[in-house]
């Protein structure tokens, strides 16, 4: 590959991978809202119930 193409590819793909990774990290680490929320799988988790 020529250098400019390689730089362009690495920068573009690197940016896309980094931003995608960052947003997924945020999704996975943001604490869920108190129940009732939109997601049913944790409906019965005690500490998530509204007081």
């Amino acid at each position: 590959m020529n250098t400019t193409a390689l730089i362009m590819m690495v920068i573009t793909q690197g940016l896309v991978i980094a931003i995608t990774g960052y947003f997924f990290y945020r999704v996975l680490t943001t604490p869920p809202k108190q129940e009732p929320d939109s997601y049913s799988e944790n409906d019965d988790v005690e500490e998530r119930q509204e007081e």
């Binding site: 995608t20 943001t30 809202k33 929320d37």
Partner: peptide, 22 residues
Amino acid sequence: RSKDDIALNAVSAGFMNEFVEV
């Protein structure tokens, strides 16, 4: 539900599509 996030969800799904495409 209205109190749940859509902004982060929207960009996460959008960028995941870009990852697969680009």
